[in-house]
Simulated assay, not measured.
Amino acid sequence: MKNLLAILSATLIFVSSLTMAGVAEDRAEYDKSANETIAKFKQEKPDISAKIASGVGYAVFSNVGVNLFVISAGGGTGIAVDNATGKKTYMKMGEAGVGFGLGVKDFRALMIFKTRKAFDKFVESGWLFGAQADAAGTSGDKGGSAEVEGAIGDVDIYQLTEAGLSLQATIKGTKFWQDGDLN
């Protein structure tokens, strides 16, 4: 019986360490993506560092969106960072919308929160609604895109297209939620 308990304990410790290693790897991947995205925003918009620093917090997301005539959908992952504490909240996102559109694109979003209320609401309930219009035709460093930057309440939103071909004008809702496995 003692041997069985020892084997069971060793197995649980081993499985737990594998799970923790997987979580650490996933967090590192989210962190790497966020850092690369912020570096790209800094290249495109030199004043973005000051804007991030002046906010209560910010969120960085990688997203893939699909537009098929009147329906759009997308999903992605990201991190929300509280500037006061440095705490990272690992998150996922999904979006759906209606309007004119056709195409697929891989893009990055940066949201800067101007107030504590806006940041906390985003991390806890994570809904954003708005309109979007853009045209993109990019692959690597070739091509170009034109996205509308904007603000929803106390949140400034910026977007960069990584790759894709799309033309869209949509009204959509986006749900952000905490990644239960990584937080």
Rank of each mutant, 00 (worst) to 15 (best):
N3Q: 14
I7F: 12
A10P: 00
T11Y: 12
I13M: 09
S16A: 11
S16Q: 10
L18G: 05
L18F: 10
T19A: 10
T19S: 09
V23R: 12
A24S: 10
A24V: 07
E25W: 09
E25L: 06
E25D: 07
D26V: 01
D31N: 10
A34W: 03
T37L: 00
A39N: 08
F41D: 11
F41A: 08
K42P: 05
K42D: 09
P46N: 09
P46Y: 03
D47F: 09
I48F: 12
I52W: 01
I52Y: 00
A53N: 13
A53F: 07
V56C: 06
Y58D: 13
F61W: 11
V64A: 11
L68D: 02
S72L: 01
S72H: 04
G76F: 04
T77I: 12
T77K: 13
V81K: 13
D82K: 01
N83H: 10
A84D: 13
G86V: 04
G86L: 02
K87S: 06
K88Y: 07
K92E: 13
G94V: 15
G94H: 09
A96I: 13
A96T: 10
A96C: 02
G97Y: 07
V98R: 02
F100I: 15
G101H: 01
D106W: 14
L110M: 04
I112L: 04
F113V: 02
T115G: 08
A118L: 01
A118M: 02
F119C: 02
F122V: 09
V123R: 11
V123H: 12
E124T: 14
G130Y: 15
A131K: 15
A131C: 15
A135N: 14
G137Y: 15
T138K: 15
G140V: 07
K142I: 14
G143V: 04
G143N: 05
S145C: 05
S145V: 07
S145D: 15
A146V: 15
V148C: 12
E149K: 14
I152R: 05
G153E: 00
D154Y: 01
D154S: 08
D156R: 01
I157G: 06
I157D: 07
I157E: 07
Y158L: 03
Y158I: 02
Y158H: 06
Q159S: 07
L165C: 03
L165M: 07
L165D: 03
Q168I: 06
T170P: 02
K172T: 03
T174D: 06
W177K: 05
Q178H: 08
Q178C: 08
D179F: 06
G180D: 08
G180F: 02
D181R: 10
D181W: 06
N183S: 13
